[in-house]
Design a protein around this nucleic acid. Structure first.
Lengths: 217, 217
DNA sequence: ATCTTTCCCACCTAGGTGTGAACC
DNA sequence: ATGGTTCACACCTAGGTGGGAAAG
């Protein structure tokens, strides 16, 4: 299945990391988006995700070192288009770049189990882009394709050993999204505006940007 | 001498770390401040230093782990006061809290030698405070006392081993400063306003804050 | 024609400055 | 009275939003 993490299952055979569990934070908001089909904007310079993927992890050894890695995996073999207010299949998915271009290593890595378990882990500096060159450290996605984020907890203190170290992997269906260069579904836009503090200027209540433009006419 | 780092010389006897060298960045600016006696504001909520202490380090082993720690040490046995446009001795220095309250562990610690040598190390999230309670992670100083920052390069990957690990320590006379709750010497204020981007609003050229207030009268 | 991408922009969040009056 | 400290505030830097026109 294309939903399987390529890091873990593409010709590699790491040990499994036992007893580790990861739960998703902010499931209520993620579900609201998921109900209308989540869209994430990708830009040339890189765009943050909203909601920010945040997880709580348990069952790590407090004194051992771990890497926490987010990987975007193609969640469907298809390309999509938004037509008559619905997302529809529109041909086969394009061939993707190597999985390393869709990885985000959390900035605290490597850190101790105690550190990772102390508070929820926010993937808030991860940036999504469609720029296949000069995208240093950003996650490269294809517009109009569906992805799902995977969280890998990797027991190692050496970045070079990540592929061969004990790993636990998790994903959450409600965090699936379609990459877009401009929002297609206005229900998604409304949810973004009403929940992302940086989009406050577009809210209906108060002095919204659109309203003021209309008043000037 | 009170200028000696208490972490290194107070009843501890660490190995010396050989071949390591540290140089100060931005010496021109530091010297301008030093010529008129540098002052650093301390507040209850914590204040950044300006200039930000920035160093370049060489001679580390690329693959070994190091902590980089800044320590504020009392640079004089005296308390000071600013009178008739001069800093003068005004009694003996107050007894200081333990040196751990004047430490700042750089946020990238622990990291590899390669990481620390890649680019200058900026101590830009260090905050100075006079709040002796609830000052979590901030450097606690006494107003009207003179300090000098020490940079410790400590070869260890375990924070608990810092006191007993090989260490190299550096300080720079031109980074000495007196802690104040309000600037005393207007030459210092001028240098801060003209060089700190966040104080741009107070510059003479352009629409300065003071100028506009005067215009309204 | 239609669909997708790019770019600039007004509007925000978040937080770092010294000021000057009030406070102690 | 004097000297040091605190606080709200106008003014910045820095950077994250979707809109909408233009371009591809």
């Amino acid at each position: 299945s294309p939903r399987l993490s390529s890091v873990l299952w593409d010709n590699r055979n790491p040990q499994n990391l036992e007893n580790v569990d990861v739960i998703l934070e902010g499931t209520d908001l993620w579900r609201k988006f998921h109900e209308v089909s989540t869209e994430m904007v990708i830009t040339k310079v890189g765009r943050n995700m909203f909601p920010v993927l945040t997880v709580r992890v348990t069952g790590l050894e407090p004194d051992k070192q771990y890497y926490v890695v987010m990987e975007m995996c193609l969640a469907s073999d298809s390309r999509y288009r938004f037509f008559e207010n619905c997302w529809r299949v529109a041909g086969r998915a394009e061939t993707q770049l190597p999985s390393s271009t869709r990885l985000y290593i959390h900035q605290d890595s490597p850190a101790t189990g105690a550190h990772w378990m102390r508070e929820p882990i926010k993937m808030k500096t991860a940036k999504l882009t469609n720029n296949t060159v000069n995208s240093n450290g950003q996650i490269i996605l294809t517009s109009m394709h569906k992805y799902i984020p995977f969280i890998h907890i990797v027991k190692t203190s050496d970045i070079n050993n990540i592929p061969w170290s004990p790993t636990a992997t998790f994903s959450f269906k409600e965090t699936e999204f379609i990459a877009v260069t401009a929002y297609q579904n206005e229900e998604v836009t409304k949810l973004k505006i009403n929940n992302n503090p940086f989009a406050k200027g577009f809210r209906e209540n108060g002095l919204s940007y659109t309203k003021r433009k209309h008043n000037e006419d």
